[in-house]
Design a protein around this nucleic acid. Structure first.
Length: 215
DNA sequence: CGACTTTGACCAGCGC
DNA sequence: GCGCTGGTCAAAGTCG
């Protein structure tokens, strides 16, 4: 699934000092690793989901590789990597410090494969995956969060003609980069087997790619 | 036993 | 230069 995430002017990539690391260098002492190296930055996008579930199932398998307490937030941030060894996509999951019911998921990179499976059936594509796809489809996600420290973030950033206003609500957190939009969803609608996602069919049809809908 | 999570340590970038 | 912070590693632990 090679989704291009165009770097919109507003979201001009400004990732600097972003952590990178290579394999341990042989010359290093045991237990010591070369932590970071310059690496081509990956496209990033994030979305907020109002849910009690920390780790939303999005059709991919993720392995957690770290968790850190972050400044200005009482909630830890979790780091996940796609378990596909050819896929370098990562995601960070944290809760909004202002609204603990809001989970902020930041994806970095692009999957080089399709979703591994939808355990609850292809028709039960999770809302998270819909969000992720929609991010690309409507170009509405906030790419490269650090770039959002722009004065323009004082106002709502997005108009989303394809989505109902009941699904997309402005959200105001004390973190600048979070003064964006959020999807309001029901956690139960995400995780309940066989339940209908909190989107109407027309919207779902618009959000979920054919490859995710078959079956 | 393999896949996954937890957790402390390590390291680079950045601001002062 | 130093301390803070974020991102990652990797060993140990947990689970099915």
């Amino acid at each position: 699934l090679n989704l291009p995430f165009p770097s919109h002017g507003l979201f001009k990539s400004t990732i600097s000092g972003y952590g990178c690391r290579s394999k341990p260098a042989p010359a290093l002492a045991p237990g010591k690793t070369m932590k970071k190296q310059k690496r081509a930055r990956q496209p990033r996008f994030a979305f907020m989901t109002k849910t009690e579930i920390d780790h939303l199932e999005d059709g991919y398998r993720w392995r957690k590789y770290g968790q850190k307490a972050v400044k200005n937030s009482p909630f830890p941030r979790s780091y996940y990597r796609c378990t596909n060894n050819k896929c370098t996509v990562k995601k960070r999951v944290e809760r909004c410090s202002d609204d603990p019911s809001v989970v902020i998921t930041t994806y970095e990179g692009q999957h080089c494969h399709h979703t591994v499976t939808f355990p609850r059936g292809a028709g039960a594509a999770t809302l998270a995956s819909q969000m992720a796809f929609s991010a690309h489809h409507h170009h509405l996600m906030y790419n490269d969060l650090p770039a959002l420290h722009s004065p323009t973030t004082q106002n709502p950033l997005f108009s989303v003609p394809a989505m109902s206003s009941s699904l997309l609500q402005p959200l105001h957190c004390n973190r600048q980069e979070l003064q964006l939009a959020s999807y309001t969803t029901q956690a139960s609608s995400i995780s309940s087997p066989g339940s209908v996602p909190a989107v109407d069919k027309g919207l779902l049809d618009d959000m979920v790619p054919p490859a995710m809908r078959h079956g």
